Amino acid sequence: MQIFVKTLTGKTITLEVEPSDTIENVKAKIQDKEGIPPDQQRLIFAGKQLEDGRTLSDYNIQKESTSHLVLR
């Protein structure tokens, strides 16, 4: 499924993911596309910070959901 990640600069990154993917996996995909190390990434969805060990389905992130990327 596709999800979108919006950066603070207003850029939207499109990612191909599975509901069973962990947040860690998603951060690795963002690193592949954008070159941002996962330890600098914070992903926010529905006002919550997403934890590495959880999956997209844990957070009820469905296709075409948009989460926000904040850099630390």
Rank of each mutant, 00 (worst) to 15 (best):
E51M: 10
R72H: 14
K33F: 08
D39Y: 12
K11L: 09
P19K: 06
G47A: 04
L56G: 00
D21S: 08
D52K: 04
Q40K: 11
E24M: 13
I13Q: 01
T66E: 10
G10E: 04
K63G: 14
V70A: 06
L69T: 02
T7L: 15
Y59D: 01
L43I: 08
G10W: 04
T7K: 04
Q40P: 02
Q41H: 04
G35V: 02
E24S: 12
L8Q: 14
I23A: 02
Q62N: 14
G53P: 05
N60E: 07
L43V: 04
E51K: 08
T12N: 05
D21I: 05
L50K: 00
Q62K: 11
Q31N: 09
T22I: 04
V70C: 10
P19C: 06
Q31W: 15
M1C: 05
G10L: 04
K6V: 14
L71T: 07
Q41G: 03
M1L: 07
T66A: 10
G47R: 03
L43E: 01
E64K: 06
Q40L: 11
T66Y: 09
T14G: 05
P38N: 06
T22S: 08
E16I: 14
Q2F: 13
G47Q: 04
L69W: 03
K29A: 06
A46F: 09
S57Q: 12
L15S: 00
L43R: 00
L71A: 06
V17E: 00
T7V: 09
T22M: 07
T14N: 06
L15N: 00
D52P: 06
V17S: 02
F45M: 06
Q49D: 14
E18T: 14
I61E: 01
I23R: 00
F4N: 06
L71V: 11
Q40A: 08
T66L: 10
L50S: 01
L43A: 00
I3M: 05
K33Q: 12
T9R: 10
H68W: 15
D52G: 06
N60H: 10
I36P: 03
P38C: 09
K11Y: 12
Q2V: 15
Q49L: 14
S65L: 08
I61Y: 03
I13G: 01
I44T: 11
S57F: 09
S20D: 12
H68F: 15
L15G: 00
I61H: 02
L50D: 00
T66W: 08
D39R: 10
I23E: 00
P38S: 13
G35L: 04
P37H: 11
Q40D: 09
F45P: 00
K29H: 04
P38Y: 12
T66Q: 10
F45R: 03
P19Y: 07
Q41A: 05
T9V: 08
T55F: 06
V5A: 02
E64T: 10
D58A: 05
D39P: 06
L15M: 04
T55Y: 06
I44E: 13
T7F: 15
N25H: 12
Q31Y: 15
L15F: 04
Q40Y: 07
T9L: 10
I44C: 13
P19R: 06
L69N: 02
N60K: 09
L43K: 00
S67D: 10
D52F: 03
I23H: 00
T66H: 14
V26Y: 01
V70H: 14
T66P: 08
E18S: 15
I30F: 02
V26H: 00
S57L: 12
T14H: 07
I44R: 05
E16L: 13
I44L: 12
I3W: 02
K29E: 03
Q31T: 08
E16R: 09
N60S: 08
T12S: 06
I23Y: 01
F4E: 06
I23Q: 01
A46E: 15
V26G: 00
V70I: 14
E34P: 01
K27E: 00
K48S: 08
T66D: 09
K33M: 11
G35H: 07
I36D: 02
D58C: 03
L69M: 07
T12D: 04
Y59S: 03
L69S: 02
T55N: 05
V5H: 01
L8N: 12
N60R: 06
V26M: 05
K63Q: 13
L15R: 00
D52E: 08
L69A: 02
M1F: 15
T12P: 03
T66I: 13
S65A: 09
M1A: 03
L69V: 07
A28V: 12
I61G: 01
D58V: 03
T55R: 10
T66R: 08
P19S: 09
N25D: 12
K6N: 07
S67F: 15
Q41E: 01
Q41S: 04
Q31G: 06
S65P: 13
I36H: 07
V70M: 11
L50G: 02
E51T: 06
V26I: 12
E24V: 07
L15C: 02
L56C: 01
R54N: 10
E34W: 15
R54G: 05
K11R: 11
I36S: 04
I36C: 04
P19Q: 07
A28Y: 12
S65C: 08
P38E: 07
M1I: 11
Q40C: 10
K33W: 06
T7M: 15
H68Y: 15
D32S: 12
D21P: 00
D58N: 05
R72Q: 14
Y59G: 01
T7P: 03
N25G: 08
Q2T: 14
T12V: 14
T22G: 03
T22V: 04
F45K: 03
Q41K: 01
E16A: 08
T66F: 10
S67V: 15
I30Y: 02
M1T: 04
Y59H: 03
H68V: 14
L8H: 14
Q2K: 13
Q2L: 14
I36F: 10
L69D: 01
V70D: 07
R42E: 13
L8I: 12
L69Y: 02
T66G: 10
I3Y: 02
D32Q: 14
Q49T: 14
F4R: 08
Q62Y: 12
S57D: 08
Q41T: 05
K27R: 05
Y59L: 06
G10A: 03
R72Y: 15
L15Q: 00
S67K: 10
L69Q: 02
S57E: 11
Q31D: 05
P37V: 06
E18K: 14
V5M: 03
G47M: 04
Q49R: 09
L71Y: 07
G53V: 07
V70F: 14
L8T: 13
E34V: 14
K27I: 03
L71M: 08
Q49N: 12
V5E: 00
I23N: 01
P37Y: 05
D58Q: 07
V17C: 08
D21T: 10
T7H: 05
S65V: 09
V70L: 13
I13H: 03
R42H: 12
P19F: 07
D21M: 10
K11M: 09
M1N: 03
T12G: 04
R42C: 14
I44H: 09
R42Y: 13
E51C: 09
T9G: 12
I36M: 05
Q62C: 10
D32K: 13
L69K: 02
K63T: 11
V17F: 03
K27C: 02
L50C: 05
F45H: 11
D21F: 07
I36T: 07
I61W: 04
K63S: 14
L50T: 03
Q2R: 13
D58S: 12
K48A: 09
L15E: 00
E24T: 08
V5R: 00
E64R: 04
L43M: 03
R72L: 15
K6Q: 11
R72W: 15
S67N: 10
T22Q: 04
T9Q: 11
G10C: 08
D52N: 10
